[in-house]
């Protein structure tokens, strides 16, 4: 029997994360969706999808006294961050006027816009206008091998939806990049933590493969 906990802070869609894990895992794997610290602490693996705005998400963690538990999980068991669950691991996000994050990975979270205003984002390559949020299927270039990339093609498309993106400062913590007007971190990690900006639970067979890889990952790189 193995237990996978999906961190739930009350908003957004966690059902699909849960269903995707149940779809790929064998019958001995149990999935719980929870915000309970002791359940998270006893789980074998933890998935942190992150939801809504990053400030609200981190406040929700504080309100439930989960920060210490998170650091404990980060130092002890396979931990998958999805979307905000990746962004929250860096030092700082400029979302909502600026938020200090967990600081586990070296890098910052910035808005897609090029500084000429929130609603203008031009593609430097073509001069064309790019829409924000970055929404849809884009290619992920794997920058380093990792057990979670097992059986996933280089350049595979995954489903993204986000307005803020990560810029990593440490290439040893960078596992994948995507282009959208600029190059940003599509996957980052360290030790037993692996985080993705895209939504594997919504990325059809390639996404399910990544989740399958996570469910059998022992946390070593």
């Amino acid at each position: 029997m193995s237990l996978v906990a999906v961190v739930n802070f009350g908003t957004g869609n966690l059902r699909s994360v849960q269903k995707a894990i149940e779809h790929v895992a064998d019958k001995r794997v149990r999935v719980v969706v929870t915000d309970n610290g002791s359940e998270l602490a006893k789980a074998d693996r933890v998935v942190f999808p992150g939801q809504g705005a990053i400030g609200t998400c981190l406040d929700a963690m504080e309100k439930r006294d989960l920060r210490e538990i998170f650091y404990l999980i980060l130092s002890s068991k396979p931990f998958l961050g999805i979307c905000l669950g990746l962004q929250a691991m860096y030092k700082f996000s400029e979302e909502g006027g600026g938020v200090q994050c967990m600081g586990v990975l070296d890098g910052v979270v910035e808005h897609f816009s090029d500084g000429s205003g929130r609603d203008k984002f031009t593609d430097p390559a073509t001069g064309g206008r790019l829409k924000v949020p970055h929404m849809g299927w884009n290619n992920v270039m794997q920058t380093q091998p990792h057990p979670l990339w097992c059986d996933i093609e280089q350049g595979q498309r995954f489903y993204f939806v986000h307005s803020y993106c990560v810029q990593s400062n440490d290439s040893s913590q960078l596992y994948g990049v995507t282009e959208y007007g600029k190059t940003f971190t599509a996957a980052g990690g360290r030790d037993n933590f692996f985080g993705v900006q895209f939504h594997p639970e919504k990325s059809q067979s390639a996404g399910l493969q990544l989740i399958k890889n996570f469910v059998s990952w022992d946390g070593s790189v």
């Binding site: 059902r15 699909s16 269903k19 995707a20 149940e22 779809h23 489903y159 939806v161 939504h199 639970e201 919504k202 990325s203 059809q204 067979s205 996404g207 399910l208």
Partner: peptide, 11 residues
């Protein structure tokens, strides 16, 4: 929606 979400893994 729940039934579709358990079988179809796209948005």
């Amino acid at each position: 929606v729940e039934e579709v979400a358990s079988q179809v893994f796209i948005p």
